[in-house]
Design a protein around this nucleic acid. Structure first.
Lengths: 339, 339
DNA sequence: ACCAGCACTCTCGCCAACCGAGTGCCAATC
DNA sequence: GATTGGCACTCGGTTGGCGAGAGTGCTGGT
């Protein structure tokens, strides 16, 4: 009873089940894969795999299906990388490069993932906190109100209103703008505080409150976690016949609407080194217990991770294909990102 | 056989069916509503209503359910407006007023609609074309690239990169910015072309290409239909037990992902005067044949309609409640909108 | 270590029978 | 003429039984 063949059997079970979405029995297994042994032998192997908690049978007289643990082993040790075809790569590249602004880039990335994987895509906008500041603009509106506009080097534009007590003249405003911009140039939003503090110091006393207020809006309000944004694409894929969840779609859709929790989950599971996979009950969210999540960070052209993109589908998914798609899109996305 | 009672019967059928989601028969009808007649009489009325195409029976020996036409008549003539409760109104008001920026306003409006109606909410961002221009900003980035930032009086901020052939000095840039801003002040993006043309004329020859390019970016790129954006909320509501569609969720979810077509549908059905309802097959999109759409325009504080908000649910929905919710949110939204 | 055979289990699909809800119609009544 | 009680009829949904098929575990032989 070679250990090696047992894993072959597991691989065969996973591949067959993913393809046919039906529990797979010993006979079928020997027919469709060259295992070189008889069904009876396979049955022994399957008994061992079940003992090890890698597969299970839904009913007494049905075939076996992989457990979460089985998928995990498959992903970690058995799955062969299956790179995308050249036409696919080209399609990704051109489709992304046709984007006209950041919203468009994010939307297109989502559509790509959704279409390539046939699952739900989640794309996070470049995190403000981890982006660099490209430009800061101060626009006076009605009396006493100032509009602060922040443009990051990843292309995000955010704005906040600011009530300022003192009257504003264009001169000081222009000066403040210039100083803040030169102080902040290229820095990340998250560690821009010190630079701003120095600028505030250097301002004449009567304008210090203004400078402080602006600095605070930028560092605090825009650096908040609540400013993170994500976009979902391809939810219709959830309803395709190929995805029948035991518990129905409801918990899944509900989980996807919990954007804050969802983003936390994605953030936690993503390490800087490539694609991460979380399977079934490994997911912290109960609603995603029947799904697997494949994520990757993506970054600006210089390689830093500024946000996350991922694909969510049933645990019974095509892992090699999904991983390849997520990785590819993340890579091209980093290349295309403005800046 | 009074015409009036026949309509009472229709109303009773609609109300009962909406509540219980089960075909309603003559006996139940007389038990649950004070119609003052016997089941047999009701049967006669029902036969007439069926003849008129207002109700139908799913199976030979089941009760009746309203047809699209029946719902239409109900909405147009039978439904009594049911205003929201005071606490509900207060909740809407405070929840919306706590929003921190436009994204937040739109997100909150969606969540309100989704929660109040238990259906899917669609909220369109204030249309760029129908918004006024608050401020135009020109930011030079790397050599030969100019970032054009447009801020509308509804709070939207959009940006475009522009490749400019000539070198830029801060002086001309500042002048151009000042002129364009004063020319455009308060105008709607859609009819800003003329004003810009005059500015372009007045510029010295060597800067005309620049001015023209900027003007074109603003009027063309930002005025495009593709720049309209919508946000969906509450898709999980679709999966609630209370919404079992004959054809399944799939076509509905797919329709909701066709954002361009969907927005077109909403735009077409919305007239300026209040809430509009489109029922079942009246909807142009096949995927929405089993759903009804309730929409209303909303506007900036001065009353113009700048965008649309709506609620989408099964034809078997609580029309009075949905209409009240959509109208209320649209109203408060207009009040809260920046500007 | 592998494998053929066998008894056993359980799901699924099918069919027949039955029950109940609801209808349409008709004759009687107000 | 509208309303009503009565009655025969239709049909969907449910129940129970039955057989077929798929798959397993086990045992004994090679």
């Amino acid at each position: 009873m070679s250990e090696e063949r047992r894993l072959d059997v597991l691989r065969a079970i996973v591949e067959d089940y993913v393809r046919t979405r039906e529990p797979v029995g010993s006979r079928i297994l020997t027919e469709r894969h060259q295992l070189g042994v008889s069904p009876a032998t396979v049955r022994n192997d399957m008994a061992a795999l079940e003992e090890a908690g890698l597969i299970a049978q839904p009913h007494t007289s049905a075939g076996r299906i992989p457990t979460d643990k089985g998928y995990r082993l498959f992903v970690d040790q058995l799955a062969e990388v299956r790179p995308l075809t050249l036409p696919q790569k080209r399609a990704i590249e051109t489709f992304l490069s046709e984007a006209v602004d950041l919203d468009d880039v994010v939307a297109r990335a989502g559509r790509l993932i959704a279409q390539l994987t046939g699952q739900v895509a989640v794309v996070q906008y470049p995190s403000l906190r981890r982006s660099g500041l490209r430009h800061l603009e101060l626009v006076p509106t009605v009396e006493g109100r100032l509009l602060v506009v922040v443009i990051t080097d990843t292309g995000r534009v955010e704005q906040r209103f600011l009530d300022v007590p003192v009257d504003l003249d264009d001169g000081t405003l222009g000066e403040l703008r210039a100083r803040l911009n030169s102080a902040a140039a290229g820095r990340r939003l998250i560690d821009i505080g010190d630079a701003f503090a120095r600028v505030t110091e250097a301002m004449p006393d009567e304008h210090k409150p203004l400078a402080t207020a602006v600095a605070e809006v930028v560092t605090t309000a825009l650096g908040e976690e609540s400013e993170e944004r994500i976009v979902l694409t391809g939810q219709a894929n959830l309803a395709r016949a190929s995805m029948r969840f035991e518990q129905g779609l409801r918990p899944v859709l509900e989980a996807l609407e919990e954007q804050v929790v969802l983003l936390g989950l994605l953030t936690d599971m993503t390490d800087d080194a490539g694609v991460a996979v979380s399977i079934g009950h490994e997911n912290r969210m109960a609603g995603l217990a029947e799904t697997s999540v494949v994520t990757s960070g993506y970054g600006s052209s210089d390689g830093d991770t500024v946000a996350i993109l991922s694909s969510i589908g049933p645990t019974r998914m095509d892992y090699p294909g999904t991983i390849a798609a997520v990785r590819a899109v993340a890579r091209y996305l980093s290349r295309v990102l403005p800046g």
